[in-house]
Design a protein around this nucleic acid. Structure first.
Length: 650
DNA sequence: CAACCATGTCATCAC
DNA sequence: ATGTGATGACATGGT
């Protein structure tokens, strides 16, 4: 399983590189993370093959995956060939079989004309008149089952730099790799699949050996892809397949005739794979039906009811194994479906946060950052020192996550450290006068600390008003309110003729604070007040940070509780499904055993008693008939205990 | 007017 | 020893 997973991952990366060569982007990391459908193609537009905006590079690098970035240069062809060679040098069972499947999936040019107007014009009618974008679209849309056909129907593709690369790639890979790499990959599957799956896969190999049959080739490729996915543990894909199972009752030919074009696949990324995977699964089911005519349709719906199980009890053992496989797959599918739902919900939540952040940042960008900082700090230091530093505790609210950690870094600590630069300037201006400067200036560039007492009072009021009200409004009522609220330490400082604002007292570094205490001949009461103001101011910030941390912790814990609760529910449902499946399989095995034993005869020609014999499957796959082990051991043990008791009595 | 919430303040501890 | 952050507890004011 791990080997298959490894091969699958490597192949997926190679597929991504190859698809990027023709201008198609495959969201590989989303699949590897298990959140989305295995292949999510993002169409860059009709001209994606030529105009390749590397918009996803940042995301790919952000997520830690090194998806091959697209090359927008005009010498793209040479880079493509070089990369293609590099890909070819890669060893191991390759994944391009899936690429082949995608390419084989393409509706041919003739079929495309019948498919509808949603796609571009046919290349035959627009030869030489198409823009490079149209050519690129044709490359992606009219890729027929064989690369040779591509080059025949689109001979002008070689004119474009990317078209040449794409054509060359198709021409060399589709025909060659389908033959060369299908069988090793299938053999890999055979090593990990059940007997029934092996038979079906062998059928696929047999079909592959016939080069004239293109449609069966398509079927097998799709089946191969489906089986390969089923080998891995990426069960969310199975859930997607299961969702489509009831809708998949068409025969193989209809499935092929309704094959999805690459254009369709690229237009709707998420839903497309549902359709594609569903059809793939339908072909698999249909082929299994041809192999095992007795298979019930109920099995395809993974209904694990005991009645169904008993109804299938008379089937050959292999079919029962197939049934059990389906049932068990349903078990995992159900659980993984739930998991997928929860993961998608979580993902939606994250996306919502992203959009919220984006909107918020858009709004914030139109506002003066200083005003924002004031607003931010307003929620924090609301009273005398409300201006706060450039990094107030409230600033941590900007980050939706890990705010508690950020607060430690950006909260009170940042508050004090960031504003540390202010007093240093202010001390230089000790003799200067408090001036009714711009509020934001008072917050950020306030160099006037000391002032005569007769100027200190209005300056303090203005300073505080600027701190509190300027970002919001210049309302006089608000000013009066602020004057009434600022009081306490600020009023005390005023009353004690302290030529510093509370903000300055709180934010100045301790060295400068000590210098102020030593250099101004303050009375002991003034020194005490200064120390109290500083202590209270810092403690106020600390309290705000502490409360915010507490709230964040509560929020985080609540989210974790919800997540764990959802996980518990999912596991319980999965457990119930598993139990039901196990019961059904047990019934089937029991019924099968009875059927087999009823057809066997002992030495005297009498049928074996199902109550006395059972079937045992050895490790080598050999099935042997064994007599039922009666609970003789317990009886003998009971006899022994009785004997011991008797001995003790004696 | 009680309940609740937000905020400030104090005391205390730890670093 | 001192400064400072963190935090519980309490006070206060608004809703």
């Amino acid at each position: 399983m791990q080997i298959a997973k490894k091969y699958f991952t490597e192949g997926l990366i190679q597929l991504t590189i190859l698809l990027s060569l023709i201008g198609v982007r495959v969201d590989i990391d989303s699949y590897l993370s298990g959140y989305y459908s295995p292949l999510t193609e993002i169409n860059l537009g009709a001209s994606s093959a030529y105009i390749q905006t590397p918009f996803h590079i940042s995301r790919d690098t952000l997520d830690g995956y090194s998806v091959h970035p697209k090359c927008p240069e005009l010498d793209y062809f040479f880079a493509s060939r070089r990369l293609l060679d590099e890909v070819r040098t890669l060893g191991s069972p390759r994944f391009p079989t899936q690429l082949s499947a995608w390419l084989v999936h393409q509706v041919s040019a003739t079929d495309k004309a019948d498919s509808g107007p949603s796609t571009s014009n046919s290349t035959d009618s627009n030869t030489g008149l198409e823009s490079p974008e149209d050519e690129a679209r044709d490359v992606s849309e009219h890729l027929p089952a064989s690369g040779q056909e591509v080059c025949q129907t689109n001979p002008e593709l070689g004119q474009g730099p990317c078209g040449a690369g794409a054509c060359g790639f198709l021409k060399e890979d589709v025909d060659a790799k389908v033959k060369e790499e299908e069988e090793p990959a299938l053999l890999t599957q055979l090593a990990h699949s059940s007997t029934l799956e092996q038979e079906s896969l062998l059928e696929g190999i047999t079909a592959l050996s016939n080069p004239t049959r293109h449609h069966p080739l398509t079927i097998d490729l799709d089946q191969h892809w489906s089986n390969l996915l089923s080998v891995t543990d990426l069960d969310d894909l199975d859930s997607l397949v299961t969702e489509r199972l009831p809708d998949l009752d068409a025969d193989i030919t209809s499935a092929i005739s309704h094959d999805v074009s690459l254009h369709d696949a690229m237009v709707s990324s998420a839903g497309v794979f549902d359709v594609a995977s569903g059809r793939t699964e339908s072909r698999t089911i249909n082929q299994q039906r041809t192999l095992f005519q007795l298979e019930s349709t109920g099995s395809s719906h993974s209904d694990a009811s005991p009645g169904m199980a008993l109804g299938l009890a008379a089937l050959p053992f292999a079919s029962v194994c197939n049934l059990s496989g389906n049932v068990s797959s349903h078990t995992t599918l159900g659980g993984c479906l739930d998991e997928a739902v929860f993961d998608q919900i979580n993902q939606l939540g994250l996306e919502g946060l992203d959009t919220m952040d984006t909107q918020l940042m858009d709004c914030l960008e139109s506002i003066d950052p200083r005003v924002l900082e004031d607003l931010d700090s307003d929620s924090g230091l609301s009273l005398e020192s409300s201006s706060g530093g450039p990094v107030s505790p409230g600033s941590s609210e900007m980050s939706s996550s890990s705010s508690s950690y950020c607060e430690d870094e950006c909260g009170a600590t940042g508050y004090s450290s960031e504003v540390d630069s202010l007093p240093s300037k202010g001390i230089m201006d000790y003799s200067s006068v408090w001036s009714p400067v711009d509020p934001t200036e008072s917050v950020w560039h306030d160099h006037s600390y000391s002032s005569p007492p007769f100027l200190n009072q209005p300056s303090v009021t203005l300073s505080h008003k600027s701190i509190k009200e300027e970002p919001l409004s210049d309302d006089d009522d608000g000013q009066q309110l602020e004057e009434r609220e600022l009081s306490r330490d600020e009023l005390r400082a005023r009353a004690m003729c302290i030529p510093f604002s509370v903000l300055q007292i709180v934010n100045m570094p301790v060295e400068e604070f000590l210098e102020v205490l030593d250099g101004h001949d303050f009375s002991p009461e003034q020194v005490t007040l200064l120390r109290d103001i500083r202590r209270r101011g810092k403690n106020k910030l600390a309290a705000q940070n502490c409360r915010k941390r507490k709230l964040d912790a509560i929020t985080g814990l609540q989210e974790e509780v919800d997540r764990l609760r959802a996980q518990r529910d999912r596991l319980l449902r999965e457990k119930q499904l598993t139990a039901k499946t196990m019961g059904a399989v047990g019934q089937q095995i029991k019924q099968l055993t009875r059927d087999v034993l009823a057809r066997l005869r002992d030495d005297s020609g009498r049928p074996l008693n199902p109550d006395r014999f059972t079937l045992q499957c050895g490790a080598n796959g050999r099935v042997v008939v064994q007599p039922v082990r009666r609970p003789v051991v317990s009886t003998t043990a009971g006899n022994k205990t009785d004997k011991r008791k008797k001995e003790k009595k004696q």
